[in-house]
Design a protein around this nucleic acid. Structure first.
Lengths: 190, 190
DNA sequence: GCATCTATCCTAACATACTTAGTTTCTAGA
DNA sequence: TCTAGAAACTAAGTATGTTAGGATAGATGC
């Protein structure tokens, strides 16, 4: 029997694809099956289920940071916030498993994970600094924007909205309200 | 051996307490142990793990609706929104397991669950109607407020905020921004 | 080209949790 | 008191995660 030629990256990549396709919980069994391998083989490349989840979370956060960065580059102010918001929601829809994985707090001591987490926040902070915000006001504004976007996406994903009105329309209104709030945030330059 | 005298309500109550005390996933084993009973005994009162989760979710949503209602009664406008927001966050801190359980979409066909879910939303809608909102504008506003509050609480609970600044201060600022946005919402009475 | 060695992947077995089947036993009501 | 039914149990089956230890493909050194 030929070897499968696994690596840590391949195992995690398979898990990432699986997580995005299958709404259920991630299992080693499924990952092994997709790679044409038995479950114990995965332990050579990943520290069990917990390690696999960590790997998926790390990957997801890196991608999330990249998506936000790409949306913000070359834009500023309301336009940048709007582009980031739309990009985030679109990405969350396309990659539900990764989006959920990215919620995990970074594993203590995992520098890569912490860095990826920090970068996603940093992009948002950089954009909001363009409103003239700094210090505590900036922190509050970042938290506000993250909360609004994250909360909307979560509620939408978990079926928390009835079907009375398209979620996209409500999201646009939310972004409009958020940018308005940021322009009038304490400490913002008028 | 004397009987434990279980009922569906007692089983779910034990599960609720357990969920709020233990951050890990809810297990039948723990619930059975707490009730001094073997796991199969629970099946007389609850439809397996899934049924237990449903029961916890139903209970949590009822309590959530009650908490929001209590906060809003006798108040209106910004004051009502602020009271609901504070009550929600306080309740979420005190009952993390129930808060997470309340996120579940109501089980299709479970009238009780659907009713409890709807009532929590209805209280918010009623308060926001006090801003003169109706129709799609009202739907958008409710979704905005729910998203902001829920997102903040989730990010806070999952350690998404660094420790640079107390979350409570950011939350007050979020509530201030949200009430401002509601006062200026499209269709709001000035 | 051949021997050796190492990492990869495997089988086997165990641990934990959920679930079902079938039995015992307690309790309530005739 | 006796009986019917429900409540709880034991035993067994299923699914997943995990560990132990062995076989082997493929690389490495001569």
């Amino acid at each position: 029997m030929g070897r499968a030629g696994l690596t840590s990256a391949k195992v995690i990549a398979a898990a990432v694809r699986l997580a995005d396709e299958d709404p259920g919980p991630l299992t080693l069994k499924q990952v092994a099956a997709r790679l044409g391998v038995r479950e114990p083989s995965l332990y050579q490349h990943v520290a069990g289920l917990e390690g696999l989840r960590r790997g998926v979370a790390r990957h997801a956060k890196r991608e999330l940071a990249a998506v936000l960065t790409a949306a913000a580059v070359g834009r500023a102010g309301d336009e940048a916030v709007g582009a980031m918001a739309q990009a985030l929601r679109t990405w969350a829809h396309a990659h539900p498993g990764q989006y959920r994985a990215a919620e995990r707090a970074p594993a203590a001591g995992d520098g890569d994970d912490e860095r990826a987490s920090a970068q996603a926040v940093a992009v948002v902070a950089q954009v909001l600094a363009g409103y003239g915000l700094a210090g505590d006001h900036l922190v509050d504004a970042v938290r506000f924007l993250r909360a609004a976007l994250h909360g909307f996406i979560r509620l939408e994903a978990s079926g928390g909205f009835g079907m009375s009105r398209p979620a996209g329309a409500s999201f646009e209104q939310l972004v409009a309200a958020a940018t308005h709030a940021l322009r009038h945030w304490p400490g913002a330059t008028p």
